Structures are given as structure tokens and as C-alpha cells.
Simulated assay, not measured.
Amino acid sequence: MTDDGPAELVLLAAVARRYYLQNQSKVEIAEELGISRFKVARLLESARERGLVRIEIVRQGALDVDASARLQERYGLRHAVVVEPADHDPGSVRHQLGRAAAELLAEVLEPGDVLGLPWSRMVHAMVGALTTLPPVEVVQLTGAIALPDFDSSAVDIVRRAARLAGGPARVFYAPFVLDSKASADALRRQPAVAEGMQAASRVTKAVVGIGRWAEGQSTIHDLLDEGERAALARAGVAGELAGVFFDASGKPLRPKVAARLVTIDADVLAGIPEVIAVASGHAKAPAVRAALGGGLVQGLVVDTGLAEALLVDEPAPRR
């Protein structure tokens, strides 16, 4: 990790919050975080030297490190980044979160990792903000969706990331959503698609978007007809992640329509050691909370509105 990256800053905030606001000892903090008490002492000293700790834990630019640390602690996440948007235009928020996700990914990705990327507006924004990556293989996780306001496909996303990483790109040409199970089955049998899907089993880190099962909150939701949307809602679908449907508890579901999607299945998703989700808006909170509860994601990059909704019932810090 770099000294000034978001993961390092959030770790400093997590240690400082436990020590200064929750009155935990250095030994207790070390045991909770799985580090030595000597490292805890060094992190506390570093937090003071950087000006991260005054009377309260303060923001570092657009990064709300206190909310990030609270979110990370509350849900047991590997990484959590909360961004205070400069404005609330959806395109601008997506751009700001994409930039924060790009910084986090460049910090936590290690040489030899295999990076998985699906089609997603948020993933598109993140890849567009990337400036560097360590040498890794990049794998396409889903087919593509053609939207009038987006001119890049899943293939474009993966190839751009692979160029920056200097590693191979595992891509295939296929739509995300097809009109029938037979069409999707035929595509999945094509060697390029089959090989691409097989490569997903090697992914060690993935970045995804999360869709809530509601109008305007999920691209897949909005692509289906009204009857299909209602049927999935009745079946208990609360959201989807890279085309993997899940209920309010985060349990993956396999509704009939899933057979029409060209994407990874729930078992492959569960086998990825670290999935980082990028999402915005308090309206997404039910789906994001469900995905967290089901262990579908281990990292988050969100705006302050969504973070506040996820922390709304958090106990007040001990004084």
C-alpha cells in the first residue's frame, strides 16, 4: 500500500477512532485489527503528524475518512471509501466515485492479481479515471449493454484496464441480456465466450456496480419488460450485482430470466476473494445492505448520502 492512498488513510482513521473515540487500548485495537500493538502506536503517531487527528477525525479532501472508517468497522469490510461529492449531478457523482475507486484499486491491486470487470456505468467511470495499474491480467465478467449515453462496451473497459496494467485482456463479444435462453445458451457455447467465462474463475479482485430492483436503479431492471420486473420482485429480488440476483438477505437467487444473461454465476462470484462495489445515492441502500449482509462484497466506494443511509442505525460512539 502507498503511504497516501485511501486504504492507508482509512486504516489510520479506524485506529484513531477506536483509540480516541471508543477508548480502546492499543492491545485491544491490535487484537481486533490483527496487527501488532507497536504498529498501532506508529499509526496513531502518524495520524497525529498528518493532522488526521485533532478533536475529531477530519476529512482528507473529498475523502470522508471518519465515515469510511465507521463503514469499514460496521460491516467488517476490507476497504471502505466515502466521498463527499462537490455537486449532486448524477454524472458528476459517478465521475467522482470513479476517480476514488480508481485510486483505491491502484493502491490495493498487487502484481499477479487477476482483475475482473463487468459492464457497469460505475466501472466505466472508474476505468476512465485510471492512470496506472500493477501488472495484472484483466478478465471480462459480463456481456455488454448498449446504451445511448455510453459509447464503451465491456470489451473496451477490460482492454483499457489491461493496457494500463501491461497484462493480458480476456475478452469476448456478447450482449449482456438476450431475448431467450436458447440464444444465451448458444452464445455461451461459442469458444471465445466459454473461455472468457472460464477465466472468471481465476479472478482475485473485482470491481462492480450494484443495482437495486427498482426503476432507474438497475440497468438490467430497466431493460426487462414490466411483467418480468414484477415477477422478479414477487420472487424476492432486491438487487443485482453483475447480473447475479439476490434477495433482501443477500442470498443469491436464480430466477428464470437469469438464463438469458451472459455473465458469471453466483458460485463464481462467491469464489472471488475480494469484490469492491461502487454505488451512489441513499435509494441504493437496501440493495447495498443486502449485498453486504450476504457477503457478496468485501469493499465499498460510496458517496456520503449512501454512507449515511448505511450507517443510520449505527450506535453512537462511546465517550
Rank of each mutant, 00 (worst) to 15 (best):
F176A: 07
V138I: 03
V203M: 00
V158S: 04
D185P: 00
L224K: 04
P135I: 13
S180I: 07
A125C: 02
D222L: 10
L178M: 14
F176S: 04
R212V: 01
V108D: 00
D222M: 07
I220T: 10
V208D: 09
V108G: 02
T132K: 15
V138A: 11
A233G: 05
R163G: 04
L187Y: 06
V138L: 03
I157D: 11
L133A: 04
W119V: 10
A144D: 15
A169V: 14
D156N: 11
H124C: 15
A231G: 14
A214Q: 13
A100P: 06
G166K: 01
P135L: 11
I220V: 14
R94E: 13
A100K: 04
R212H: 08
H95T: 12
R229M: 01
A161I: 02
I157S: 02
V127F: 05
P118E: 12
V207T: 01
A233E: 15
W213K: 04
I210F: 08
G236L: 14
I145E: 10
V177L: 15
R94M: 09
E215D: 14
S180Q: 03
F150Q: 12
A165E: 04
L105C: 09
S120Y: 13
S152E: 14
L105N: 10
Q198L: 10
M122R: 05
L105V: 15
R121E: 07
V136A: 02
A186S: 09
A169I: 10
E103I: 10
S183W: 13
A161P: 03
A184M: 04
D225W: 06
G116N: 05
A129M: 06
M126P: 05
E107S: 03
E226N: 04
P148E: 15
H221D: 11
M197D: 08
G167F: 03
R189C: 10
V207L: 01
T204P: 05
R163M: 14
A230Y: 12
H221T: 07
I210D: 08
L232W: 06
T142D: 08
D179V: 02
G166Q: 04
Q198R: 12
M122Q: 14
I220P: 12
E228M: 06
V123K: 02
E226C: 03
A174Y: 03
K205M: 10
L105M: 14
A161V: 07
D222H: 05
V139C: 09
A174S: 15
A129G: 11
R229L: 00
R234V: 12
M122W: 08
W213Y: 11
A102C: 00
L133G: 05
V114S: 00
V123R: 00
